[in-house]
Amino acid sequence: MKSESDSRNQKVELRRLLLQQRQAIKTQDWRAKSDRLCLQIQAASLFAKAQTILAYFSFRQEPDLMPLINQASDRVWGFPRCVGKSLFWHAWSATSNLPLQSGAYGIKEPHPDCPALEPEQVDLILVPAVACDRQGYRLGYGGGFYDRLLSDPAWATKPTIGIVFEFACLANLPVDAWDQPLSAVCTEAGLFDVPEIPGV
């Protein structure tokens, strides 16, 4: 049985290698992979049924969702603002009069005066990740923001899609007790639903 520190060390090393690999992708390839990934999301039934969707602004060569967001302008799109150890969600669109801001980690965030979004308004969460596995577990950036969000009863029942490039979709990731499985994972090669785990 792996100890908590073994799992943490494994995650740290895996995160370092995968981020290195992601940042080595040529800009042209990153753009093409992001565009294909957006098409895969657009074809998903979880997306078709959703009206209010939480997303993210790409950082450090994460898959870029802006082509999807711009094309599906009939949806309400929400983006996170990082406050302390929590994420607060605000509706934002390219036509907003309020400028985006740079958050604590240098990631773009909506202006605090953009309309707030509460859990009951949200139909789907597109979750950024360093990696995901075939069981729906994700490797995040180590801050625990999405672990805390997805374990909160108000958010725990929301459908979630992990967003990664195909190279970062692994057979298995090291898993800790607090890790929350996602509903599905999407890469540029396709989207797959995650089988439900009994008792989770």
Rank of each mutant, 00 (worst) to 15 (best):
P128Y: 14
I125A: 07
Q21F: 07
A154T: 08
S73G: 05
T157G: 15
W89L: 13
Y146M: 08
W89Y: 13
V130W: 12
A24K: 15
V185K: 01
V127W: 04
G142A: 11
Q61F: 12
R31N: 13
S96P: 05
L170V: 02
Q135G: 11
A154H: 14
P195F: 01
W155G: 11
S5F: 09
C114S: 12
Y105C: 04
A184E: 04
A189Y: 00
N97Q: 13
P153E: 12
F167L: 13
W77G: 01
I197F: 03
S73H: 13
G136K: 06
P112H: 11
H90N: 12
N172W: 09
V164L: 08
Y137D: 05
A72S: 10
N70H: 13
G140T: 10
R134Q: 09
G143V: 07
A50P: 01
A168L: 09
D176Q: 15
I41P: 05
F88Y: 14
G106E: 05
A129Y: 11
P153N: 12
I125T: 04
S3A: 02
W89F: 15
Y56D: 07
Q51F: 00
C38M: 07
R75N: 02
R15I: 08
Q21T: 13
E196H: 14
E120Y: 10
A32P: 09
A189E: 04
I41T: 05
Q101P: 00
T187I: 03
E196G: 08
A116K: 07
D179I: 04
P153M: 11
D6T: 06
I125H: 00
V12G: 01
D6E: 13
L191P: 02
Q10V: 02
R134G: 02
G144W: 10
P110Y: 08
C114Y: 00
T27P: 09
Y56I: 06
V194P: 02
Q40E: 14
S86M: 08
P159L: 03
E120G: 01
D6G: 01
Q42L: 14
D133H: 08
G143P: 09
R15E: 11
T157N: 14
A116M: 06
V76Q: 13
R138L: 06
H111W: 11
G142V: 10
L173D: 11
W155C: 12
E166L: 02
L173E: 06
D64Y: 06
A131N: 10
G136M: 09
S3N: 03
N97E: 14
C132H: 11
D179C: 03
V12Q: 15
G140V: 07
L173Q: 08
S93V: 03
F145Y: 15
L149I: 07
I163W: 08
A24I: 06
V185T: 02
L39A: 15
R16H: 15
V164E: 08
V164T: 10
S3V: 00
D113R: 08
G136V: 06
K49Q: 15
R75L: 07
S86R: 13
P80D: 05
F167W: 10
P63H: 04
T157P: 13
S45R: 12
S102V: 14
I125Y: 02
F192M: 09
S5D: 12
I107K: 06
T160Q: 06
L87M: 11
P128M: 14
V12P: 00
